[in-house]
């Protein structure tokens, strides 16, 4: 055996290389099957940045489909509930220039809203229940429906199907739990009266 290898170095080298190729090929093949990714991981990342209102204003039936569409090259400025902040973070993630919100899909609203059903007007048609993308409306046929405020994403989708127009979109009440201190205005925007002659206007004890 040793003799054979010594005598035919080229052949033995070829055999050795071929054997290595087979081993690595098997390992890679196994890894390709075992650690296969079901979908593009960037879709998950994009989906995480989207506001999950599931409103469909982007033209897709929910946030995840839109995330898929973005991963496939759709524009990132079709999400009014996310607004400019979402567009910016998406641009950051995808390393592209951040466009402004496409007005065609709606306007960004500063106030978060939730659906509210005027319960004595509700006829119990269940249409809004079927429309709600997050199952945030409870009720049954011919029974009054109501919105689970904590689960409502404010997507607006239940307003349209209501035959008696008893659904309002009300701004979310901001209680103490939602309150936070304001960020001070940026230094550049504040009046800088620091020259001695200006002191009188800013306060006597400088």
């Amino acid at each position: 055996m040793l003799d054979l290898i010594v005598q035919n170095p080229i052949v033995s080298a070829l055999i050795a290389l071929g054997g290595l190729a087979l081993v690595f090929g098997a390992v890679l093949g196994f890894a390709a099957v075992r650690f296969r990714l079901e979908e593009d991981p960037v879709i998950q990342q994009i989906d995480d940045l989207l506001p999950q209102t599931q409103c469909g204003q982007c033209g897709y039936p929910g946030c995840r489909p839109y995330a898929q569409a973005i991963a496939n090259g759709d524009a990132i400025n079709k999400c009014p509930p996310g607004g400019q902040a979402t567009i910016n973070s998406l641009a950051d993630l995808l390393d592209v220039e951040a466009p402004t919100l496409d007005a065609e899909h709606g306007e960004e609203s500063d106030v978060k809203k939730v659906a509210y059903i005027r319960e004595d007007e509700c006829i119990g048609c269940t249409k809004c229940i079927q429309a709600c993308p997050v199952d945030a409306i409870i009720g049954a046929a011919k029974q009054m429906h109501t919105v689970i405020v904590d689960e409502c994403t404010g997507c607006d989708l239940c307003v349209e199907p209501c035959p008696v127009d008893c659904i309002d979109m009300l701004p979310v009440e901001t209680g103490l739990n939602q309150w936070k201190w304001d960020k001070p205005a940026p230094i550049e925007e504040r009046p800088l009266n620091i020259i001695a002659s200006d002191r009188g206007t800013t306060g006597e004890a400088a």
Binding site: P51, Q52, T53, R64, P133, V134, E151, T153
Partner: peptide
């Protein structure tokens, strides 16, 4: 909240 919305949606 958005995670919950996502779960509910899915």
């Amino acid at each position: 909240k958005s995670d919950r919305a996502r779960r509910r949606f899915e």
